[in-house]
């Protein structure tokens, strides 16, 4: 191979170096889009942050393989949450929505300390109700909060459409009565 030829070949390779495959670009794009929603959902199930991050990695590696074998691209959001949920079920979980989550997040300054105390108390009550929900009810509620349709939630959790509606009704009823205690 002549020097000149080698040089031109090298140049071509250099130019192509950053051209990741379209599939890699697609998967990293989806990662950017869904990492935070999926992260929130996994935390709501009680995963520790580092476990959630690891589960998310697994999900997107699996997604890469899924898309590589030309599987369906229909409803990738549902696919991502379903695989994430299944992976999460294999990881140890702690009670989600600890009171500690509420602290240090008060961004809007409440001028009146009495108002602030009242608001903190309301938050704690609400969070206590969420903590007391069954895992499935909490999963339904969180998935709905992430904007998923009932049909998608039913598929992700492997339950019927009716069960999703009943679960959400039950949870919101409890949440609505959180301050009546």
């Amino acid at each position: 191979m002549s020097e000149a030829y080698a040089a031109s070949n090298l140049l071509r390779l250099e130019r192509a170096k950053d051209a990741a495959s379209p599939l890699t670009i697609e998967v990293t794009g989806l990662f950017e889009q869904f990492r935070i929603p999926l992260f929130r959902y996994l935390l709501s199930l009680g995963l520790q942050a580092h476990d959630a991050e690891e589960v998310i990695q697994e999900v997107f590696l699996a997604l890469f393989q899924h898309l590589k074998s030309d599987k369906s691209r229909a409803n990738l959001r549902g696919w991502i949450f379903r695989v994430g949920h299944n992976q999460a079920m294999r990881v140890s979980r702690v009670p989600a929505f600890a009171d500690a989550d509420l602290q240090n997040t008060q961004v809007d300054p409440e001028p009146d300390p009495e108002q602030m105390a009242l608001r903190n108390q309301r938050q704690r009550r609400l969070t206590a109700v969420v903590r007391a929900l069954s895992e499935q009810d909490r999963a339904c509620l969180s998935l709905r909060a992430e904007g998923l349709r009932y049909r998608e939630i039913a598929e992700i959790l492997g339950i019927s459409l009716g069960s999703v509606a009943q679960s959400l009704t039950r949870s919101l009823d409890k949440l609505g009565r959180a301050h009546e205690l």
């Binding site: 935070i36 929130r40 942050a49 240090n104 969070t127 969420v130 509620l141 909060a145 919101l172 949440l175």
Partner: peptide, 18 residues
């Protein structure tokens, strides 16, 4: 109730996402 759950509870999880 939905609004309160999202703003005062669910969205608080964001603070734990690195």
């Amino acid at each position: 109730t939905i609004q309160e759950f999202v703003s005062d509870c669910y969205s608080k999880l964001d603070s734990r996402i690195p």
